[in-house]
Design a protein around this nucleic acid. Structure first.
Lengths: 240, 240
DNA sequence: GAGTGGTCTAGACCACGGG
DNA sequence: CCGTGGTCTAGACCACTCG
């Protein structure tokens, strides 16, 4: 009689209540199917979801065990910069500082797998929230991987939005850090002396090609990157 | 003849190759089942996984559409601090600075849903990598939710590890920012003047109870938080 | 070898929601 | 209304791997 959600939630409850503790072996699917009055397929679907969430580990013949929870995951959503600002009810403005094809420095050449002589597209721009500098973007685009970028007018469309629309799928690597801006960066962001910046560096791939490397600077006093991760199955806690 | 992985990968390929573009309607499960020579259940499982990955949106009667990819997600793994250091081959040391039951300040009272008079457990500690300060931890623990914390000796076991072991399941909220340490913090972390800190603030829930709020400071010059997100189905790009 | 999970089938009924 | 996805069943075969 039980649907897979009920089976799933019941099993999760036994784990979170520590009725089944980390390391414990869970009854086999056939046993649970009988207990819950459903077929093994239904139990299997429930168990699959719990395993996907990382609560249990399953191995043929060895059975299913409650996982030792060692670390917690967090899912960040990196929004479109324009949306991020407009969603807060602020006006979004965009300024292209410079955009030119230039010889790629060594670090970029390595990331893009380019030879010594090759060039790439380098551009810098500023994003404003209510006319206040919100993000300074320093981006390299791999023209070997994305040759169409050369014909784009990035004074009109910001590279963030253009790339998201033009590149169908990719992997990404993010690095977050705190740093001290150099004098030019500080001036562009209109920072007070001594003000730190929150730095996001992102590398993006299309299949095996690196398509872009971007370095995003935010004023330290104004920027907070937030993520909320809920239990995969349990109800959402009160938002404090 | 096709298994659900083949069906899934074939459909994903049509999306990433832009054969099916964002907004497009995908053939119904029955059609795809006939095309791939399998049952609708197999197609359904493939589509479920693709939908979970966020590539498509499904609605009864309306059918399945390719999603407009507006923002990218990133999955962070917050490791055990000891592991993070030891995995780099460095020596981990831990120092409890202070640990006392104290009246909770207003912000903590609000987060923990406490009344004006109530107290909570406040502790501060330092984590070292090769004897260099790596993380300054300032933590409040809600004794209403986790009364066992009062009997713990946090000079021996650091609160990070104890909580991960003691609390079976929870949600969490992370906020990342860059900041300027106050003089005491700067001294504890042995920072040079003007050095910024990378700040992680985390709230953790057990069901509807807030169990702990922790503020973690890292020296800005030494700390980088990295995350690598791969396509859910495609092979991993070359690690640059 | 044998027990467990992984997957598939053929068919069925239902819930949602667009037209 | 009625097409679509959501879910379930009863049964089957297979793949892995522990003992």
């Amino acid at each position: 009689m039980a649907g897979y959600r009920e089976v799933r939630d019941a099993i999760v409850a036994r784990i979170t209540s520590q009725q089944w503790e980390p390391g414990d072996l869970i009854p086999a699917e056939q046993m649970l199917a009988e207990e819950f009055g459903c077929t093994r397929a239904t139990v299997n679907r429930a168990m699959q979801e719990i395993a996907d969430a990382g609560l249990i580990e399953r191995r043929r013949k060895a059975g299913t065990r409650v996982v030792r929870r060692e670390h917690r995951g967090a899912t960040l959503t990196i929004p479109l910069i324009r949306r991020e600002i407009e969603n807060r009810g602020q006006r979004y403005d965009y300024l292209l500082i410079d955009c030119e094809r230039a010889p790629a420095p060594a670090a970029i050449r390595m990331a893009f797998s380019l030879n010594a002589g090759q060039s790439a597209l380098h551009l810098r721009c500023l994003h404003f929230a209510n006319s206040v500098p919100y993000q300074l973007e320093d981006r390299w685009i791999n023209l070997e991987a994305v040759p169409e970028a050369r014909d784009q007018d990035f004074a009109m469309v910001n590279p963030n939005e253009w790339l998201v629309g033009a590149v169908p799928f990719s992997s990404a690597e993010h690095v977050f850090s705190a740093g001290i801006p150099d004098p030019e960066e500080a001036e562009l962001l209109k920072l007070r002396p001594g003000e730190p910046v929150f730095v996001i560096e992102r590398l993006t791939w299309l299949n095996t090609d690196t398509i872009t490397r971007v370095r995003l600077l935010h004023p330290g006093h104004a920027y907070r990157l937030t993520t909320r991760d809920n239990d995969p199955f349990n109800p959402v806690p009160a938002t404090g």
